[in-house]
């Protein structure tokens, strides 16, 4: 379970505080899949980053007993002057994983060949995404944060990702941000909408989308 209690986030701007959202509360249980809807700038990524512990909330707190991934396929979590393998080993140490097992899994999944032992700065964008995704899967979390997964890689890679995430790991919790309506409808148990500076939860998908549409334009 992960629970957000009265979460608010503000950023300092030159013209004073800008509140992204206030009083956000929600709970996700093991195995649940929740879609987060909201138009550009509504704070979807900010919310994901708060849940992932990347940024700290301005108010409220997040409690829970599940391990939470970083936003999936994100490769910013790497040191680019180090090799893919060095990064993998570092992450294994941080998350207490067996590096050899993880190395095997990443080799299989990311198909980087000998480039695994080259610095990440020599990688193409696609290679970086494959490595990032591979490492997230190798560490294996109770809850995966997924921010616009569809944008990464070619069709074959995407199919591989779907298979790994939604077939092999269908018992995990997932928080999914996507602009792709069908994706959220197909993959999520319920949805929540970020609008009007707060998060509104819906058990019913149609209601969630109706609310989203109503608030997307205004």
């Amino acid at each position: 379970m992960i629970r957000l209690e009265n979460i608010s986030k503000a950023y300092r701007t030159r013209t004073g505080r800008h509140w992204v959202f206030k009083d956000v509360g929600f709970t996700i249980n093991r195995g649940e899949k929740i879609g987060i809807l909201g138009r550009n700038g509504a704070g979807k990524s900010t919310l994901i980053r708060l849940i992932g512990g990347i940024e700290q909330p301005t108010g409220g707190r997040i409690v829970g007993d599940m391990s939470i991934s970083w936003p999936l396929a994100f490769s910013g979590a790497f040191q680019h002057s180090l090799t893919g393998l060095d990064n993998l080993k570092f992450i294994c140490r941080v998350y207490n994983k067996d590096p050899e097992e993880a190395e095997q899994a990443v080799e299989e999944f990311a198909e980087l060949g000998r480039y695994l032992k080259e610095p990440i700065k020599t990688y193409s964008a696609g290679m970086r995404a494959r490595l990032g995704f591979g490492i997230s899967l190798a560490v294996d979390f109770d809850c995966f944060l997924i921010d616009e997964i569809v944008a990464v890689g070619d069709k074959r890679f995407q199919e591989k990702c779907y298979n790994e995430l939604f077939v092999k790991r269908k018992d995990r919790a997932m928080i999914i941000v996507s602009h792709n309506d069908n994706f959220v409808r197909d993959r999520c148990d319920r949805a929540a909408v970020l609008a009007r500076s707060t998060l509104t939860e819906f058990d019913d998908m149609d209601e969630a989308f109706a609310f989203y549409q109503a608030n997307a334009t205004g």
Partner: peptide
């Protein structure tokens, strides 16, 4: 970038 790992 290390902050992407919540334990760090």
């Amino acid at each position: 970038s290390l902050m992407y790992h919540r334990n760090v």
